[in-house]
């Protein structure tokens, strides 16, 4: 049976790993390749590397990080951040990435999803959505949660799927950094609405939260960052726990 996936996310700035709490106030958390290797050995099923540097120089540094990841790590990984056009996708896939994640650029130019799907296949294209629950509506945000948009989670996710997204990575800004669990109601509604895999993100604080997002939230994969980076949850122990809870997991 297909296993549920555990995905650590590494935010990369100037070649180093950082993680924001509620998208601000970064703390340093180590070397991206060393950390990725460690996660892979502990049983991570995939890795996500997000480039949060905006500059041209930073982008070159990130491409070098992607090459080193591909050379050293034997599990699939997705890269995101600063992908605005097809040539960015081409550069990152050539550096050895398996998938790309697009967020603001897809909201600004939804056709980019179709272009990626047509040129590289739908399985390469992860559409990341940052949304915040406001007066009962999940409003989508741009630029790492700083700029509000007119779009809402469900209609945008559906459109992204129709345009050729291979997966949806939904981050609840409402839950991110709070560590009280994932946005399982919204995730379950997404799962009922879509026929592509969904990655839950934002809110992990305890092992139970992963179990809940796979059962109540019907998620295919769960992404987390700080709980892994700061050693609050050990991936190997987490997977053992999920296995004992009858979640289909790769041990």
């Amino acid at each position: 049976m297909l296993a549920k996936r555990i995905i650590p996310c590494l935010d990369i700035k100037d070649g180093k790993t950082v993680k924001g709490v509620n998208f601000v106030n970064f703390r340093d958390a180590g070397d991206p390749i060393e950390l990725g290797t460690q996660y892979s050995e502990l049983g991570a099923d995939e890795l996500v590397y997000l480039d949060i540097t905006a500059s041209h120089e930073g982008r070159k540094t990130f491409t070098e990080v992607v090459k080193r990841v591909a050379a050293n790590i034997s599990i699939p990984f997705t890269v995101g951040g600063g992908i605005n056009e097809l040539k960015d996708v081409d550069r990152l896939l050539n550096a050895g990435a398996d998938k790309v994640s697009i967020n603001s650029s897809a909201l600004r130019n939804p056709k980019l999803i179709e272009e990626i799907a047509q040129n590289f296949g739908t399985q390469v294209c992860v559409v990341a959505i940052d949304a915040n629950l406001e007066n009962g509506a999940w409003n989508c945000y741009l630029n790492g949660g700083r700029v509000p948009t007119e779009r809402t989670l469900f209609e945008w996710a559906k459109e992204a799927q129709e345009r050729g997204a291979g997966e949806i990575l939904f981050t609840s800004m409402t839950h991110d950094g709070v560590k009280t669990g994932y946005a399982n109601d919204a995730l379950a509604s997404l799962a009922d609405l879509l026929h592509i895999p969904i990655i839950a993100s934002g809110g992990a604080g305890a092992k139970e939260h992963f179990k809940d997002t796979f059962t109540l939230g019907k998620a295919d994969a769960a992404l987390a960052a700080s709980v892994f980076h700061f050693g609050e949850i050990n991936i190997s122990e987490l997977k053992q726990y999920l296995f004992e809870q009858q979640i289909n997991i790769r041990l």
């Binding site: 049976m1 297909l2 296993a3 996936r5 099923d45 739908t122 399985q123 291979g166 997966e167 009922d192 026929h195 592509i196 895999p197 295919d220 994969a221 790769r250």
Partner: peptide, 16 residues
């Protein structure tokens, strides 16, 4: 071809 709503395509991830 999906037989149920839960059958997602592509088959993506780890299987035995």
């Amino acid at each position: 071809i999906a037989q149920r709503h839960e059958d997602k395509i592509p088959h993506m991830g780890w299987n035995t």
